[in-house]
Nucleic acid binder design. Structure first.
Length: 372
DNA sequence: GTTGAGCGTT
């Protein structure tokens, strides 16, 4: 169970983070769903992303099927089956305080945000400091145009365990006499997912994933043949993580076939997340994936008074490079390799160095996971 | 001063 008893007394904030990092996409109790993904064309987008909501002001209401329950948040109570409505639901506690943190964005695995950094601190200083908490993979202090520290930055650890560890220390971390503000790293802007020439907006293509799984792409919609429809045991949210509060998934913008997303109303049998798992299946079902669904951090109360939650997405990149299946077309790869950007003369430009193909990505949940 | 620039616009 989670958290372990010894963590039961931790402050709420920490507990919430721990809960978050224990989710399957962080290698939590849902197993390790991470898969490696191919290199993205855009050097600006190094991280691998999956749709992964982490915050919510929207809680499942009994008798309503439209709320998409995607994850549970750990409490120190006894575990309950999150798919069953609790007679006494725990009060929802949004993971992110709307007033204090990013309201939506893209969560980056193994990375933490560090605010309150002394302005004279450089990245090497920070690396040294944080190395005592784990294996630091990357340090980034955000500077303004003039190169002056903005007082915050990002530490990427090699493992989520390290990131988790530092979160436990978050409340008491001081550096150069200043208290550090530490939290999960969330990109508030989605960058570097260009309109892809390999995924035109119209036409039908018959593709396979790099693992050989066939799918059809038509009019911006990817159709996956998937095995079972209603009998897929929910693997996410991890029911073993326990009760509530609950996080909610909503559709997010993305490129079709780049990101797999839940429909606005996740109906079993209609749609399925993620990278297909079994090429062997040939069940006659098509799962509809809406394309170009825009994530909107709106706060308009929806039908039933459900306030759309602020979302975070796990950062992801192209899960699989599609391969032409039965239709041959040539696509010009949007390649920047070997091309000098026009703006390369800008004194501020430098391509990111942390672009890695081996970064991992979590497998998003299947549709049925959203349905209580 | 606390959640990531830059070009210029596919």
């Amino acid at each position: 169970g989670f958290p372990p008893p010894l963590l039961a007394g931790l402050p709420d904030k920490i507990s919430r983070w721990l809960a978050f990092f224990s989710l399957p996409h962080f290698g939590g109790e849902g197993g390790d769903p991470r898969v490696s993904v191919p290199v993205h064309d855009d050097p600006r987008e190094p991280e691998d992303v999956v749709n992964c909501p982490i915050t919510s002001a929207c809680w499942p209401q009994r008798g309503r099927s439209t709320e998409a329950v995607t994850a549970t948040q750990t409490t120190n109570q006894t575990q309950t089956d999150s798919l069953s409505p609790s007679p006494n639901p725990v009060s929802p506690v949004p993971l992110n305080n709307p007033t204090s943190g990013p309201r939506y964005g893209t969560v980056i695995p193994n990375r933490i945000f560090v605010g309150g950094i002394d302005f004279k601190t450089n990245e090497n200083d920070l690396r040294k400091f944080f190395s005592q908490y784990g294996s630091v993979k990357e340090v980034k202090i955000v500077n303004d145009r003039a190169g002056v520290s903005k007082g915050y930055g990002f530490i990427t650890f090699e493992t989520q365990e390290d990131a988790q560890k530092i979160l436990q220390e978050a409340e008491k971390l001081n550096y150069k006499d200043k208290k550090l503000n530490i939290g999960p790293a969330i990109r508030k802007q989605q960058v570097g997912i260009p309109r892809s020439s390999i995924m035109p907006a119209a036409g039908t293509m018959y593709l396979t994933t790099s693992t050989g799984y066939p799918y059809t792409y038509h009019n911006g919609v990817a159709y996956f043949h998937t095995p079972e429809v209603t009998s897929v045991p929910p693997s996410w949210p991890s029911r073993s993580i326990s009760s509530s509060p609950v996080m909610v998934a909503q559709p997010v913008y993305q490129q079709p076939a780049y990101h797999y997303q839940a429909p606005a109303q996740c109906i079993p049998g209609q749609w399925q997340w993620g990278v297909p798992q079994s090429p062997a299946s040939s069940a006659p079902f098509l799962y509809l994936q809406p394309s170009e669904v825009i994530y909107q951090p709106v706060e308009i109360a929806q039908d039933g008074g459900c306030v759309p939650p602020p979302l975070s997405l796990m950062e992801a990149s192209v899960p699989e490079e599609p391969r032409l299946h039965s239709v041959r077309r040539s696509f010009s790869q949007p390649s920047s390799v070997g091309l000098k950007p026009r703006y390369s003369r800008s004194p501020h430009f430098h391509p990111r160095k942390d672009f890695r193909a081996e970064d991992s990505v979590s497998t998003p949940p299947s549709c049925t996971d959203f349905v209580k």
